[in-house]
Structures are given as C-alpha cells and as structure tokens.
Design a protein around this nucleic acid. Structure first.
Lengths: 190, 190
DNA sequence: CGTAGCATGTAAAACGTTACATGATTAA
DNA sequence: TTAATCATGTAACGTTTTACATGCTACG
C-alpha cells in the first residue's frame, strides 16, 4: 500500500495543501508515513496527472502562495476501491526482540537493566499516545458511526502498547524468579 | 538498526553460510528482514572488511562450495555493545487502521465484511505463528535463562496477534450495536 | 538578531525488493 | 523431465530518508 491511498482518505475528508498533509502525517499515530516533502509533493503531482485530485493555487499576502488539493469523483472511486481490497496483516518490527534474543551474553544485572529500559520506553510511548488522542483532530460532520470508528482506532493503538507493557512486566518477573533459582543452586552444596 | 547486528547475533550462536542465514531470516518471525541475497551477502562482505567476521571456504563434492562465516572477538564486542544500547520502541504499521479510518464511506454491509476479513487474516497469522513456534530451531548449549528468553519472545508475538484478535472482535461487536441503534431510530416516528 | 512557522519543491544517499545468472544434485 | 535444494553473487528497480534551496513574516 502506498501513501497515495492515505492522502486520498484525508482529502475525502477535507481539501488540503501538501504542507497541511505533512503535518497530519507527522501528528497521526496510525498513518505511519514520516510525512517528508519528497513523498507528499511527488504523490500529489502524480495523482493530479492521474486525475485523482485537482489543485487550486491561492495567493496570500502574508505567507507564500499555496496549492489546495481536492479529491475528484475519480479519486473518490479509487479510494472506495482500495477500502474494499483485502486487508493486510499488520507489519510489526520489534528491534527489542532481536536484542533480547542474544541477551544471554549479558550478565543478570545488564539484562535486568535492558528490560527496565524497554519498560520505560513503552510507558513513554503509552503516555505520548494518550496525549495525542486527547488533542486529536476531530473530523467535521461526524456520524455516530465515524466517531465510533475513530475511537476504535485509538483504542487499538493504546491496547497495543498496553499489551507490550504487560508482556515486559511478565518477562521481568519470570527472569527474576529464574535468578533466584540460580542463587539457591549455588548455595546448595554439590 | 541494521541487519548486521542480527547476523552477528546468529553467528555468536553458530557459524553459518550466507545461505543458512537467509533461511534463518525467512523462518524467523521476529528477525524481520526478508532475507534476500543482496542484503545478506553484502552485509557479510562489509563485516569481513571491518573484521567483525571471518570466512572459510569449504569445498564440497556433491554441492557447490560454501563460505562459512564466524564471528571474531571484535564482532562479539560489537554485538555486546549493541545489546546494551538503548532499546527502541516497536515500529508498527497497521494498514488496516488506515483503511478503517475512511470506512465511513462504506455501507454497513461492506464495513462488516471488511472487519470479518481482517479477523480472518489475524486468525491465520496466529495459526501460522503457533506453527512456527512448534517447529522453531532450538539453540545448542542453551542455558535455562536462554530458554526462558526465547520462550518470552514467542509469547510476545503470540500475545500481539491475540491482542489484535480481541480488539477486532470488540470493534465488530460495537459497530453491530451501533447499527441496531440506527434501525431503532428509523423505526421511531419523528 | 535569531528562530520558528508558512509553503513548495529538488537532489543525493541509503535502504529494500525482485529479478537475473550459473550450475550441480536429488527426489517426484 | 521437471522442480526443488544447495550455494554465491550482481543488476535493476523502487521506496524512504535526509539534506539542500528559497524567501517572507512574526515573535521573543
């Protein structure tokens, strides 16, 4: 899936400039593109050539001119087509699991530190997500169904981090129990 | 983080050829690189130049010659350094959430279909993960601690998909309740 | 007087995937 | 005889990130 579908989605909701789209991508937790100029401006140009969007230049006195992009009938059709295409499984990259895989090379203390660092990182992410949700943009003319949908998207992200937090706590607990077992072994005479 | 650290990790465990590494990446659920030739062979060559690994060519009669790579002292040091670097938050891309975001454009029936398709996809992923875990490679000379670590890595992946499954069921339920509410509204005289 | 915001775009580098190329052996 | 496994490598292409380039306004 490309950034084009996401842009069509945003434009279906509200006509925007490239600059505005960029900020939306930066602020969104689930529209995962970094929102760099290169991707957005190029995508908009391509989509204009394909007649999925149209643009209108607006001259301003106190700021540089801007190009407001709007979705076309054709673009809306393309968006709906994509919405009904078969959903993909999430793509998840947890670098921490790769680190953990070889962490038997570390001492108990180093491992313990590593785990608590990850727990703190996840806690931080959770807080940031909660903050983002509170200040999230609310779409105009929202139906009850659309509100529900957006609430469930937020709930998904929060529950993902919560699940990770539960897991890391469990992992720390189990590794601690294991350590205690080892000490007992050492104290026991052979 | 690059594929190099993951390769160092595998080599710390067991000397391998590029071909073997490729298969390990393909089979692993948490070492998320696709395991294509280009990445692996190039990384190995770079790492040999940096003296992180050494290679030994072994000629075989019934198969083509192979290059067995081993980790060096320097490589092991580099690996340990990486293990103790601060852990990153997971990188999660859920295309489905982007689709869901604009799905108010769909009819109740289409939306419902979309949700159940996603539920099936996640169920499939869960089954595949369980299958992978059953046939997973078990490392030689494993300490109790290392076994525990690997068990927790598997548990992480399973719980991630399970969490997604719980969420999609909840979401379907809530959207269904919402539909019922709407029908009642329609039946009610204005 | 420097920094941040508004606003659009391009260039270069890094990273990733797919496909190409070769060639022997083995199992269906 | 066709496909799969073993085994290493390169070329072409596609995507993503980072940096460059411009220039005005507003705020501290």
């Amino acid at each position: 899936m490309s950034i084009q579908s996401a842009i069509l989605g945003i434009l279906s909701w509200k006509s925007s400039t490239g600059y505005e789209l960029k900020k939306i991508f930066e602020d969104s937790s689930f529209m995962y593109w970094s929102g760099n100029n290169n991707q957005i401006y190029k995508a908009l140009m391509n989509m204009e050539e394909e007649s999925l969007v149209t643009s209108e230049v607006v001259h301003q006195t106190n700021s540089p001119s801007k190009k407001i992009y709007s979705i076309t009938e054709e673009g809306l059709l393309e968006l709906k087509k994509w919405l009904m295409s078969s959903p993909e499984a999430p793509e998840i990259k947890k670098t921490f699991l790769v680190q953990l895989a070889w962490s038997d090379l570390l001492s108990n203390q180093q491992l313990s530190e590593m785990l608590s660092n990850y727990e703190n990182e996840i806690k931080l992410q959770l807080m940031m997500q909660n903050e983002k949700n509170r200040r999230a943009l609310h779409s105009p003319n929202r139906s009850a169904r659309e509100s529900l949908i957006w609430d469930m998207i937020s709930a998904n992200i929060i529950s993902t981090y919560n699940n990770e937090l539960i897991w890391i706590r469990e992992t720390r607990q189990k590794l601690l129990e294991n350590e205690v077992g080892e000490e007992t072994d050492n104290e026991r005479p052979n």
